[in-house]
């Protein structure tokens, strides 16, 4: 009897040792996005060496992939960035286009693209990639429900990221948010841009809402505008106010810290 109790205690200690939190020196650095409201709400930015999950509807693929790439590039700085996707994604969503990446200020020469045959191979390669500390950041693109990405798989990814300090971004196109070990979970959609003179589409704009965060409040929403040339996010709207058509709102910015965006985004449509 006492023997089994002893072994049970040993087992518990063993499990506790397995599940211990990583040393605080690794992964406590924060990645400032450069957007004041976002950084303030996140206590300085996204945690490095963690996995962040971004959800986008299937028809929002351009925006979701764009924002994920921008964040991954910010995390990677000048180091190489690996974008893992499946051949099915490439078939359905198009392939990455170098001139377009360059136009967003993401140097295509520092980008590696991994086209995997299926989700299982993709997840294996993702763990491998997250274990390689020379990698700047890893972008993992999964389409649809991705049943293979369960709690175990996402925990495996999170552990690999914590050990190496590589920041991982899980891009879920057309997937529904399910519980995962990701540090933060976001919903991304395109937002109407600030038009250029002549009503031409302007710089890329994103509607970003924080679905869940491991430590801290969630349910916040922002509107981000990315200027590829400056390599920085802005609120938009302010500097180009005279071109906007939202006179009836008296210039009140649509976004800003702590202003939630309605789920159906009727405000966005009205403002456009």
């Amino acid at each position: 009897m006492s023997e089994s109790i002893n072994s049970l205690a040993a087992l518990k200690r063993h499990i506790a040792a397995l599940d211990r939190t990583p040393a605080p020196t690794v992964g406590c650095a924060r990645l400032a996005t450069g957007h004041a409201g976002l950084d303030a709400a996140l206590d300085g930015g996204l945690l490095r060496g963690r996995v962040h999950e971004l959800f986008g509807a299937a028809e929002e693929e351009g925006a979701a992939a764009g924002l994920a790439l921008i964040l991954a590039r910010l995390a990677a700085d000048e180091a190489p960035l690996l974008w893992l996707r499946t051949t099915a994604s490439a078939k359905a969503g198009g392939s990455p286009y170098g001139p377009g990446l360059a136009a967003l200020g993401l140097n295509p020469a520092r980008l590696l693209i991994g086209l995997m045959a299926d989700d299982a191979m993709l997840l294996r390669a993702a763990v491998e990639g997250l274990r390689c500390p020379a990698l700047g950041a890893l972008l993992i693109e999964l389409r649809g429900r991705a049943p293979l990405l369960d709690l175990t798989a996402s925990r495996r990814l999170a552990l690999a990221a914590e050990q190496s300090g590589v920041t991982g971004f899980l891009l879920r196109v057309g997937g529904d948010p399910v519980p995962s070990a990701a540090e933060t979970r976001w919903q991304v959609a395109a937002a109407p841009s600030d038009p250029l003179p002549g009503n031409a589409p302007g710089h890329s704009a994103f509607a970003l809402s924080l679905l869940r965060r491991r430590a801290g409040p969630d349910g916040l929403a922002w509107r981000l505008m990315w200027d590829g040339e400056k390599g920085a996010f802005g609120d938009g709207r302010h500097e180009r106010h005279e071109h906007g058509q939202d006179g009836q709102q008296g210039g009140a910015p649509l976004s800003g810290a702590l202003v939630p965006l309605p789920a159906d985004r009727s405000a966005a449509d009205r403002a456009a």
Partner: peptide, 18 residues
Amino acid sequence: GWAPVGEPGDPPMRPLHL
């Protein structure tokens, strides 16, 4: 090196996905 399409200060002239 990649030469960007369009004038400096313009929004992206080429798409991200093709």
